[in-house]
Design a binder for these strands. Sequence first.
DNA 1: ACCCAGGGGCAAG
DNA 2: CTTGCCCATGGG
Length: 277
Amino acid sequence: MTDHRIRATDFDLRMTLESGQVFHWLPDGDGWVGLIGNCEVRAEQRGESLMIRGTTPDVAARYFALDHPLRTIYRRFPKDSFSLAARKACAGTRIIRQPHWECLATFITSSMKQVAHIRQMSFAIRERWGDRVQGSRFRMYPKPERLAGATEAGLRACGLGFRAKNLLGAAQWIADGRMDLDAVAKLPTPAARDVLCRLPGVGKKVANCALLFAFERLDVVPIDVWIGRVLRAMHGGSKLTAAELDAFCADRFGDYAGYVQQYLFHYARISKTLPGQ
DNA sequence: ACCCAGGGGCAAG
DNA sequence: CTTGCCCATGGG
């Protein structure tokens, strides 16, 4: 197995993998191991280099979104002190390119769950229905066609609770052709969101997670309880409707609002602070 | 024991 | 158009 060295400026592998966008990478010594496509990949950062084993440099660079113009994105960040602190503390975090179904499915299971448990459910589902990866302890995230043949009880046994019915339903919609994620990828963002929201267990927040983390819509802002707190604190603590929160982000965060959101989300969690504290 | 978690859906006001 | 409540489960 040959190692590749990729030049990776403005990139922080650990921040990227721990920021709550992807749920299956595991620490491995000074690096990380996970799946890109159907290959087990080991990645280790050494300064501005990324050491890659298990796939080609092109594939890894695309997965980790090393082409995103991070300097430009930072220039468009808000200038308030909390956003500046988030940008500094989380520097190098990138919004990676995840597979459509894997990302959508994991966020369907995410509702009212902590990040650690989303990860646990993802591994349980992979273990039970995922295909083995050659020479790896990992299993693929099962395709919709495979999960469509699961049972609600089987999914509940993976810890999904009431989310089991939603994931099963969504898998069936895709497996039988009622939903076509490749077609969704070609739609403008508002239409794509509306279509995704037809799936059981997919509302605006989950649809926005999929749009940002898998469909490359970097202006989209998923608003969960954490981001809701951050935004309200930025707005002086007043209570805002969902529509007002959306408008606030669109106004203040611009074309890369999803990136801003990711930094604010991760920084609020690791610093245990909110704007104005 | 108690609270909360990267929500969705539906009924009721 | 909002608000209230239920849906299960595990971690802190």
